[in-house]
Design a protein around this nucleic acid. Structure first.
Ligand SMILES: [Mn+2]
Ligand SMILES: [Mn+2]
Ligand SMILES: [Zn+2]
Ligand SMILES: [Zn+2]
Lengths: 143, 143
DNA sequence: GCGTCAATTTAGACTCTGTCTAGACTGAAC
DNA sequence: GTTCAGTCTAGACAGAGTCTAAATTGACGC
């Protein structure tokens, strides 16, 4: 497999088990719940927000499971980890390449509108390393 | 002041008080110590690393002072806060615009070699917000 | 159905970074 | 030498995330 499989939201709840399986993620009740929450739409959720939605849905998972599951999903490429503000990590249910706006005053996080942003003349990675991913965060303040 | 004053390392220890003053930072013994450490060269240090170097230099400052001082320096534009990996913030003594490589395997952080990297067609910031800064982090793994 | 077993989940202790508070200290101004 | 605002300090506290050891799950073979 040279081209990485990508799952793009929205994914219907009933299709979540197959989506997990297609990425080699063993299906469990908790993983389906968490997957259904994330894949409902393209969004950016913290671990705490995921756990809050679980409760709201009448489901639940321990803190350890929430963290383990989000970490697993990120390693498998189902979601993308975003390090934005040092106080918590966000998980992005849109794993395709795109950039972000972050409002430092109110903490809101947006995707760039789809537009032909280009990053040119990227230097090659240092000797002995290979590119993993490029994160672009444009920080804005409320005017 | 429309163009922001920038201090570029290295700055000799004896010149640190004037550098602080020029940015409107009141000069104190602890601020000079911390400034001297950071401005010795272009580098990326965490709060913990700054405190360790203070001890190594026979100086010291409380944890609260280290954090307060780094936050103050960042607000005044002497250093730049870098959010790279969610476990701690780095302070970059090169405040001019530049991008970073981060090796996720060993935690090393490099500046891009100076090269004409360009980010084109950046969308305009969302209504009601204005651009603060653009952070580009290229994550690499050890091959 | 029943036992086995590896994978998963769990509660809660723990770690770590960073913040806060309340009092002590500093030093410039008078 | 008194005052006082700004700064510094120890240590309590908070919040995100990790770890551990035990309990649970569920697929599989019988
Ligand atoms: Mn933090
Ligand atoms: Mn963290
Ligand atoms: Zn996104
Ligand atoms: Zn840098």
């Amino acid at each position: 497999m040279n081209v990485k499989k990508i799952i793009i939201p929205p994914v219907r709840r009933e299709d979540v088990p197959a989506a997990l399986a297609s990425l080699g993620i063993a299906v469990t009740a908790q993983r389906v719940e968490i997957g259904a929450i994330l894949l409902e739409s393209m969004q950016h959720l913290s671990a705490e927000q995921v756990q809050a939605r679980l409760e709201a849905d009448g489901a639940s998972a321990s803190k350890a499971t929430v963290y383990n599951t989000l970490g697993l999903f990120a390693r498998k490429g189902l979601v993308r980890e975003l390090v934005i503000d040092g106080s918590r990590v966000f998980y992005d249910s849109n794993p395709s390449d795109h950039f972000h706006f972050y409002n430092v005053d109110d903490g809101t996080l947006f995707d760039f509108p789809s537009s032909p942003v280009t990053l040119s003349n990227l230097p090659t990675p240092p000797e002995g390393t290979k590119l993993d991913k490029v994160d672009v965060v444009v920080r804005v303040t409320t005017k």
